[in-house]
């Protein structure tokens, strides 16, 4: 099944739940298992939260894009922002590293995306924004029989 969706929304905390709902609803056509949906929802939540908290730093203006493409064997998900960007992507992806330790951020966001998805690619340019591309391979056991 091939299908594609794209959505944009404001970088406000309330839209984190909205983004999770949208990705779950879009993946429903695959009849996925609870466990697969839970993994994708967590990864999307982490990526969107990063955009809200770090890229736009709570400014409530700007755009976050959520895109998803269904292919035969995999799902590709993109979360893109046009916020402050990340100067050192490798450092940002280091487990437990956070630029905001005083705000009870754990620095686990990218680690969880890597744990729950099969591929995570981060492209960022300071001042221009960040694109997080995630891939989830579809195994038969991830999909309930119809």
């Amino acid at each position: 099944m091939n299908n594609r969706m794209e959505l944009s929304f404001l970088p406000i905390a309330e839209n984190e739940a909205f983004a999770r709902m949208v990705i779950s609803a879009f993946l429903m056509q695959l009849s996925p298992t609870m466990s697969m949906i839970s993994e994708v929802r967590t990864a999307v939540s982490e990526a969107v939260t990063n955009a809200v908290v770090h890229a736009y730093d709570g400014e409530r203006k700007g755009k976050i894009y959520l895109r998803a493409t269904l292919m035969e064997q995999k799902v590709e998900i993109e979360v893109e922002d046009f916020g402050c960007g990340i100067a050192d992507v490798a450092q940002a992806m280091t487990p437990f590293y956070t630029s905001k330790p005083d705000e009870e951020r754990t620095g686990m966001g990218f680690s969880l995306m890597l744990s729950f998805m099969d591929g995570v690619q981060v492209t960022s340019s300071p001042g221009n924004g960040t694109l997080v591309k995630m891939t989830k391979l579809l195994h038969e056991e991830d999909l309930d029989a119809l």
Binding site: T49, E103, E104, R105, T106, M108, L112
Partner: peptide
């Protein structure tokens, strides 16, 4: 549902 913000 819980993500890393909940952990924090």
């Amino acid at each position: 549902f819980m993500d890393s913000s909940g952990v924090g």
